[in-house]
Structures are given as C-alpha cells and as structure tokens.
C-alpha cells in the first residue's frame, strides 16, 4: 500500500521541484496533492496502471494534520462518483476505504482510489497548463483553472 505518481507527472513538475529550495515545491507529496485535489474537485479518476513510481507509504509530516480532511475529501468524492446517499451504502464505502490496522488508516482499496484520483487530476493539469519554469507562474495558472473548471 503506497502513494504512487506517474513518471510522466514527475517529469512534468521537474522544473518547479527542488528539495530545500524556497521558491520550489519541497516534497514529492506536494506534486501528489496538487494532482489529487483537482481529481477530487472534478471527481475524475484515471488509470491506476500509469502510476508507476512509488513516492511514500505514509502521509508525510507536512500533511499529517490534514490527513483526515483528505480522507473526508476522498469519501465525499466517492459518494459523488457513486451517487450514493443511503446510510448503509455510505457505511459500506467507509468499510472498504478505511482500515484501522493500516498506518495511513486507508485500506489498499483506499490507496488505489487515491492514486487513481491523482492520475485523473494530472490529466486535467496537463491539458490546461503547459510546463512552466517558475512555481509562482504555475500557481497562478493552477488557481485560474481551479476557478474556471470549477465554474464550468
């Protein structure tokens, strides 16, 4: 059970990624998160097989506090995607996504879904933003598609 990103995505972000640099993305999980949230927001899942590179097995320190909100986002997106509303259905969804024995509290199905939302999110980014060299330019364009796509 791991968080995985495609090599293609890693290659896309290479110019705005740099460990220890104060004007670049500091950790690979940032790239993962950037893709993940667009995927959640747009309820778009991609191909699991494309996620060919393992990043980490657990939530990194920088995201520890947000992890339940991230799980909540996953549940909310899956409720949307599956179009369910009954107590039993939602409870079953939670049963399949969560696993209290896992270090991330996500089941392997939960991980699989996260990785698929990442793949879906990356497709949206790739279509809308050409590779840039500066993080601030990327962020402006990212915010713009967030607003535009969200308003569509």
């Amino acid at each position: 059970m791991t968080f995985r990103l495609s090599n293609q995505a890693k290659s896309y972000f290479k110019n705005i990624f740099g460990k220890g640099s104060d004007d670049k993305l500091d950790i690979l999980w940032d790239e993962y998160y950037i893709c993940l949230m667009i995927g959640f927001s747009e309820v778009k899942i991609g191909d699991e097989a494309s996620a060919d590179s393992e990043i980490t097995k657990t939530f990194p320190q920088a995201y520890k506090d947000q992890r339940y909100e991230i799980m909540a986002s996953l549940i909310a997106s899956e409720i949307d995607r599956r179009g369910i509303s009954k107590v039993k259905d939602i409870e079953n969804l939670m049963l399949s996504i969560l696993d209290h024995n896992s270090s991330t509290e996500l089941s392997s199905e939960g991980h699989r879904l996260m990785n698929r939302y990442v793949a879906g999110g990356f497709e949206i980014i790739k279509e809308n933003i050409r590779e840039v060299n500066e993080l601030h330019m990327f962020l402006i364009k990212y915010y713009d598609i967030l607003i535009n796509v969200t308003n569509e």
Binding site: I34, F40, S41, Y63, E69, A72, S73, L146, T150
Partner: peptide, 16 residues
C-alpha cells in the same frame, strides 16, 4: 492555504 482541502476550492468546501 491550498494545502487545506476545505480551503482548496468552494466546490471542495461545499462537498465537505
């Protein structure tokens, strides 16, 4: 700000 899912977008906030 974006790192907090509920503040990511209005849509996300509504969803949560």
């Amino acid at each position: 700000i974006l790192r907090t899912p509920s503040q990511f977008s209005l849509k996300m906030n509504d969803k949560l």
